[in-house]
Design a protein around this nucleic acid. Structure first.
Lengths: 130, 130
DNA sequence: TTAGACATATGTGTTTTACCTATACTGACC
DNA sequence: GGTCAGTATAGGTAAAACACATATGTCTAA
């Protein structure tokens, strides 16, 4: 058998020898975050990047992937975009939420409520056996 | 530019036309689940598979990956294993938690508490703008 | 005139998860 | 005695998600 490299090399961060810091993030949390921000008002990519930390998405947003993600959401019809008018400064593509995007956001909220319940159950069982 | 296939083909499940069900799972949640179950008592892989649903890990456990994950945890010193005695039936490898594994479990709990806070913040902001 | 913030985008590698197959022991049923 | 289902461990491979790096252009201020 080929020796498998550690599959968890980066998901845990070494704080000091023998002490690990675990991330515990929600999969693809940026997607609902973008939908929620766009529900409030249309924004362009760079503004979204600025506002993501408000929702707790800290240090994990890759700007390149953010733009790719936005185009993906547009392909799926969850957002709609257009180039901003002939304003000064670099060209900006402004995104707004579609009705379909709003429905998917609602579905994310259901999913996040379930996730909360799961985590609560886990923590309760953890405390039980302390 | 090469056209990128939808990067979210399976992460959302179509329930009925225009209605999506979103998973919203915690990244690598099986790892802390295994550590928590093993803190309670030593178990072998197949038993862990049986008990994972108790912790809310439903329908996402791939048995092949489970064994790989267990070996990964052992490589990192979070669990220790040995082949069960000469009992009847298929050979079983029994896993138990190490002191290091216990520390990583504690770190996961911290991470999960933070994740709970993040989700709470998200949901609050969602309700605000309804 | 150059450095830095703003703005969008592509290329590519790594990590994590999903799907599929292989192997082997045991008990029940025909 | 054969086969089928359940228990048990394991490998191969592909897709999805994420991380890291780079490219390109506009504008402002030092």
């Amino acid at each position: 058998m080929r020796h498998h490299r550690h599959p968890r090399a980066r998901s845990r961060r070494l704080v000091r020898p023998g002490h690990w810091h675990v991330h515990a993030r929600v999969e693809r949390f940026v997607e609902p975050s973008l939908l929620l921000l766009l529900r409030e008002r249309p924004l362009h990519g760079y503004e979204l990047l600025d506002r993501l930390p408000e929702l707790g998405v800290e240090g994990r947003i890759d700007i390149g992937n953010l733009y790719r993600l936005l185009r993906g959401l547009e392909d799926e019809g969850l957002v709609r975009s257009e180039w901003g008018g002939d304003l000064p400064g670099p060209a900006k593509r402004t995104y707004e939420l579609t009705a379909e995007g709003r429905r998917v956001l609602d579905s994310w909220v259901e999913g996040l409520r379930r996730a909360q319940g799961t985590i609560e159950g886990f923590l309760a069982r953890y405390e039980e056996g302390r």
